[in-house]
């Protein structure tokens, strides 16, 4: 079943065409790598998915429903988005991890947090640490955990491992593959050709705002 459908999406920024007539479907459980040169519209595509931007024309359907007509707040709870440069707010890791609970008026679930800490290979003590004392890899993993606390339906990743070292990249890769094997649909922008082929079942290539290929590899 299609969890996401892009129908003739055009996105213009001040008359400049960023995405030009994009149409493709995403099936539940897909792991799609999105590749293409800088400025080809990859990040814009993800921002359209999480409805942080609206297309100039065309529709995006999530579970058959036009996201332009859905409640944007509820939609973003189902379609989680992790940015290329992780932005941690407040003072501590706990400020960041308690935020998704506070906006849902829910009590913090330490069991869930500890589970995600373990799959992302983070020490439990990190929870009370100041964000100023975190390494780049730790920051990115905390940002990922923050998006995954409430089991979204789709996870959008924008080059989340591009600034990480080999060990951190492997940890994140494995954790994300693990989540995908449990049914989470993933759209991942990556510049690393090896990474894109290793885990993904489809590779979408964008150039100058157009889809040049959608390859099914598994």
């Amino acid at each position: 079943m299609n969890i996401l459908e892009f129908n003739n999406i055009i996105y213009k920024d001040d008359d400049k065409i960023i995405l030009d007539n994009i149409s493709f479907d995403v099936n539940t459980g897909d792991f799609i790598s999105i590749v293409g040169p800088s400025g080809s519209g990859k990040s814009t595509l993800l921002k359209l998915c999480s409805h942080l931007k609206s297309p100039t024309s065309g529709t995006i359907l999530f579970n058959g429903k036009d996201i332009g007509k859905s409640n944007p707040v509820n939609l973003r709870k189902d379609i989680a988005y992790c940015f290329q440069t992780p932005y941690l707010f407040g003072d501590t890791v706990s400020d960041n991890l308690s935020f998704p609970y506070s906006i849902r008026d829910k009590k913090i679930d330490m069991e869930r947090i500890n589970y995600l800490f373990s799959i992302f290979n983070l020490d439990k003590d990190l929870f009370s640490k100041s964000i100023l004392n975190l390494s780049g890899g730790e920051k990115q993993r905390v940002a990922l955990i923050r998006t995954l606390l409430f089991e979204p339906k789709i996870l959008l990743l924008d080059e989340v491992t591009s600034a990480l070292d080999v060990d951190n990249t492997t940890t994140v890769d494995n954790a994300i593959r693990d989540l995908n094997s449990k049914g989470l649909t993933i759209l991942w922008i990556t510049h690393n050709p090896q990474q894109s082929k290793k885990y993904a079942n489809k590779i979408l290539t964008l150039e100058n705002g157009k889809i040049t290929s959608l390859e099914v590899i598994k």
Binding site: L52, V73, N74, R76, Y81, Y87, F99, S102, I103
Partner: peptide
């Protein structure tokens, strides 16, 4: 902008996203 957009992407409404 990054802080506000990050909070929006986590499913926060515009008030909790801008409260700081």
């Amino acid at each position: 902008r990054d802080e506000v957009e990050t909070k929006l992407s986590l499913g926060a409404d515009i008030l909790p996203s801008s409260i700081n």
